[in-house]
Simulated scan of single mutants.
Amino acid sequence: MEFLKKFNNNVALVLDSTGIEWIVIGKGIGFNAVKGEPVDKTMIDRRFIAEPTHGQIDLLQTIASMDPEIIDVVSDVTKEAETYLGITFSTRNYITLADHLNYALKRTQEGVEYTENLRWEVKKLYPKEYEAALKAIETINKRLSITLPKSEETFITYHFVNAQNDEGKIENTVKMTKLINRILEVVKYHFQIELDEESLNYVRFLTHLRYFIIRQTHGEPVHHEGIDQTVLEAVKAKYLKAYEAAEKISTLLNKQEDWSLSSDEMLYLTLHIFRVTNRIHQENT
Rank of each mutant, 00 (worst) to 15 (best):
I280N: 05
G26N: 00
F274N: 14
L60I: 12
M43D: 11
N284P: 04
I227A: 03
A163M: 02
G86R: 03
R215W: 13
M176A: 10
A136L: 02
K169E: 13
E113M: 11
V161L: 01
M1I: 11
L60W: 06
N172R: 13
K248H: 15
K41T: 13
E244C: 04
I25Q: 11
Y126N: 00
G28R: 11
P38Y: 02
K188L: 05
V222N: 03
R47D: 05
K123S: 06
I273R: 02
H159N: 05
K35I: 06
A104D: 07
V39A: 09
N9F: 00
L13C: 08
S263I: 14
R204I: 01
P149R: 00
P221A: 10
K106L: 06
E220S: 12
D16C: 08
T230C: 03
V161D: 00
K35T: 14
D264C: 04
E116Q: 05
T83V: 07
L4K: 08
K27R: 14
E257S: 14
R279D: 11
L134N: 08
I87T: 12
L101F: 12
N165R: 14
P52R: 12
F205A: 06
K236I: 03
K5V: 04
F155Q: 03
L97R: 03
V235G: 03
D67Q: 15
T18V: 10
H218D: 13
L4Q: 15
K106C: 07
I193V: 13
E197S: 04
K6W: 02
Y239W: 14
A98G: 12
F31A: 13
E80K: 10
V222H: 09
L184C: 11
E152M: 04
L85C: 15
P127F: 00
I20S: 12
K248W: 01
I49H: 06
K124W: 00
E171K: 14
K27T: 13
Q56D: 10
H224Y: 15
L209W: 07
T96I: 04
A98S: 15
I180T: 02
E110G: 07
Q216Y: 09
E233R: 11
F160T: 00
E21M: 10
G30E: 08
I20K: 15
H218Q: 07
N141K: 05
